[in-house]
Amino acid sequence: MTTLLATERIKLFTTRSPWWSTLLALGMTIGFAALVALNHSGGPLTVRHSQFGAQFGLMIVTVMAALAITTEYRFATIRATFQAVPHRTAVLLAKTAVVAVLAAVIGEVAAFGSWITARVIDGGPEMNLVTGGDWRAVAGLGLVYAVGAVIAVAVGTLIRQSAGAISVLLIWPLLVENLVQLIPRVGEDIHNWMPFTAVSRFTDSTVPGPIGPWASLAYFAGVAAVLLVAALAVAEKRDA
């Protein structure tokens, strides 16, 4: 497995997309935190305010993670990959792991970078990490990004096309999950159980929901696991 991880690490970092994705995700989240902190008025700046750009970073990370697998299909390097290691499940798990670790690192740097930036600009006692919720909002972001990346790799493996995978990964959390709220009576319940909505309750304790923060994260991870298993099964079965 260490061999496979090393292979996938080389593969990921010898293309350009993870680099610019990382830069973009960090630049936008931290930059947005700075914008919010600079313009803030009326009440103290809180830890939560520093993380307003978190979803932007998450979207960039999912695009990056999906591209890590769809570009392999696009350039047919997936064939070279499966030729070198015919155990497809092992290869794809290694790829998922490498991408998830990168996503986690981006998440942690983005979150702490945003927090520190906001604190430097307008730091009061409310900016200290005190409660569990404070810590989840900042340190928890890496976990959310990592699981988000797993979902993206799974979707990318299932769809195989960059445009399709990216469209699904962006339209789903940004539009579909919100549109379901329009449905009367059940809409709000469905919305609450949508994966990206659910996980927002892990990092943002102000959002009420049916289950607690850690259960929400577990639910998000569960969705990721189901998608990943489906993707692995499909990749094992079809022609490369």
Partner: peptide, 10 residues
Amino acid sequence: VAILLVYALL
């Protein structure tokens, strides 16, 4: 696609 969707939706 990423630029368009992220911009318009987020």
